[in-house]
Design a protein around this nucleic acid. Structure first.
Lengths: 184, 184
DNA sequence: ACAGGCATGTAAATAGTTACATGATTCG
DNA sequence: CGAATCATGTAACTATTTACATGCCTGT
């Protein structure tokens, strides 16, 4: 049976404890979002499919009077998750409108193309800051025995910072081409 | 009128000289592909839409007996392209299955999670190499007066190399946690 | 009373890939 | 002659986002 990557996100998210669709969405938004997002429109139908396939199991877990279903992974689900984790990753996609604009920036004035790099830099710096705000939670998980969320989060922070610096450096070279010769 | 980013890819690709759909696809594949791809299924219908909207203009340009239509940008098309280039980029997406797997790698053995990082590293190193093979063409464009394709290409190479190094470093820290303390 | 968060879901639209069909031309 | 490349296109499928609908519970 072929599962979508989003199915594995769900499998992974319920692999340590049972969670509701709403909780999965919230968790995705504060962890994998920057490299793998998921919306309600994907999560709820996928939960039903996975339950029908026997990879997860829904259990009623109301909070007071409010209905609520949490899903727990089954042994078959865990086997599917591990099998997937052991396969070499296949999807690598970057969609960066800023780079696309920069690619075509030859039709603009120099100052206008520098502005593209400034926008990109600002966005990346902001992204890094947002991710840094998530570090405490990831550190808690590390202390609880799972170092990977923190490893990935730090990678994300550093990646964004690297891109921000690249933008800065590239803007400087663009506005003062001689600079490049001087610095190497 | 709202245009899709793919429409702007096409506008940009025909902004310097008239090109056929086939040529646009080939150009995208050897330039913007790593941060913005486009397939025939998008390109041909979009060419018709853009022509209907008056942003590009199709001209018969057969090669021998073989039919061929090249599209040239119109003044309205150029205005639309420049207007778009001057707006702050809005789309920033990264989909990296390797990071997703690493995030959930806590359910695996240490050696198996290191394998994820090795796969990622290998892929990124290969990507950097492939991009490096495109440098000569980009350098030609630079010499012809447009420095941006080369700037973007070099950014892509450096980005891939940075990620490859991050994978290497992270794998080392994962397999020997004491290392981190020693080196910083 | 009302705002905000919890909770589940669906419909419609948009985006994008893959695979296929067709046929000409060029090169070895 | 056959393979590769040039060239244009479409159909079907998959993925994904956005917006909406519904309703309960908690805190102010």
């Amino acid at each position: 049976m072929e599962l979508s990557p989003t199915a594995y996100v769900i499998l992974g998210m319920v692999s340590r404890e049972a969670r509701s669709g709403y909780e999965i969405k919230a968790l995705v938004d504060e962890t994998t979002r920057f490299f793998w997002a998921a919306s309600y429109g994907q999560i709820y139908p996928e939960l039903k499919r996975l339950a029908a396939a026997g990879l997860i199991e829904g259990v009623d877990a109301p909070r007071g009077e409010r209905k609520r279903t949490v899903y727990a992974i089954t042994p078959q689900g865990e086997a599917a998750l591990k099998g997937w984790l052991r396969q070499a990753p296949a999807t690598y996609e970057l969609r960066e409108e800023g780079l696309l604009k920069l690619f075509f920036a030859g039709v603009l004035q120099r100052e206008e193309s520098a502005e593209i790099l400034r926008s990109m830099r600002e966005h990346r710096a902001g992204q890094a800051e947002q991710l840094r705000a998530l570090e405490p939670k990831a550190r808690e998980k590390e202390e609880a025995g799972d170092p990977f969320p923190l490893i990935v989060l730090r990678g994300g922070i550093e990646l964004n910072e690297w891109i921000a610096k690249w933008c800065e450096r590239t803007e400087a070279e663009l506005l003062d081409p001689a600079r490049k010769e001087r610095s190497g």
